[in-house]
Design a protein around this nucleic acid. Structure first.
Lengths: 180, 180
DNA sequence: GTCTATAAGGGGATAGAC
DNA sequence: GTCTATCCCCTTATAGAC
């Protein structure tokens, strides 16, 4: 009946990483959350880092693919933001949580969240960006991160209306002069 | 010649808390950053929490006063955001850093950063806010947090142009239909 | 697969010399 | 005021029984 332990542990770790951050979350916390012993957690995942890496894998891949699509198919800022928000909402905001949490900096070298964020911001800023373009891109990206509190509030998935509202706010932050 | 140790330690702690977060920063890190021993750090500040509390004190007071001013004098969202951004830039973004870092949740009960953030968002959302109003308020507040990367990039204080750009982006995120 | 017990190390904090 | 040495708990991780 119970879902397998692996998935339980990942789910519990995700919640704790969102609430307390990676560094402040101990294996004991995770073990207690799933009603198991620390050794059980270590049996399923050799190290604490492994839990983080596994949690991050799918969301990171999704963002990486978004970046590739944006570069090759020249996605518009609106499409980039929309995709990013949808992806974040569907993957439980794990990428966003890692992007925000300073204690995860450089944690998983293969999955460089900071570099990915910088690339998205560059894409949002457009070619030959001015300092002002960069600031607007960062502000828009920051606005998109709003999925996290929204998700925590609704405890589940984000409904389409909320996603659209976040998308629109981020896009407005980006565009100083919207196209007519 | 050297500024007194207290100030050095606070400055080093601020930088490390911004980069790695509170939980992931050890007293040894701070001590190494100022070229002193852990015992010296503990001599000046009895506990790690004390360092955080002292760092946060002025920025938190500034935000608290902003909230009071906003409530009593009915500040406009534009004024609230402008004040918040100016205050953040002038206090080295410490409040923002604590607001973002999940490992500081509930750290200094006397200075409840989360509650202060919620109150600002409420004020931005206006009276009787719809869910959409709340999302826009959160997005605008998130956009204002952009001071942190901007500050880290410029290593010093934010120039007026950058502040104005952040302020404008946050305000656009907030306002679905700007007043004509 | 899950547990208890334990190792090994890091982190906050103190004692006491200088 | 600053240091070295130390304490002790918490954390990650392992060993081995069941």
């Amino acid at each position: 009946m119970t879902v397998d332990r692996r998935a339980e542990i990942l789910a519990a770790a995700r919640l704790l990483f969102l609430r307390k951050g990676y560094a402040a979350t101990s294996i004991a916390d995770i073990a207690a959350a799933v009603g198991a012993s620390k050794a059980t957690v270590f049996y399923h995942f050799g190290t604490k880092e492994t839990i983080a890496a596994e949690l991050l894998e799918a969301p990171f891949t999704a963002v990486t693919q978004l970046i590739e699509r944006a570069r090759t198919r020249q996605l518009s800022p609106a499409e980039i933001l929309s995709d990013y928000i949808d992806g974040a909402a569907e993957t439980g905001a794990v990428f966003v949580a890692f992007a925000i949490d300073p204690s995860t900096a450089g944690l998983i070298p293969q999955h460089d969240v900071d570099a990915a964020c910088r690339r998205i911001i560059e894409l949002l800023a457009g070619p030959d960006p001015t300092p002002a373009d960069r600031i607007r891109a960062r502000a828009a990206f920051a606005a998109a991160q709003t999925v996290v509190p929204a998700l925590q509030e609704h405890q589940g998935l984000l409904d389409d209306g909320a996603r659209e509202e976040i998308r629109a706010a981020a896009l407005r932050a980006l565009n100083a002069d919207p196209s007519p």
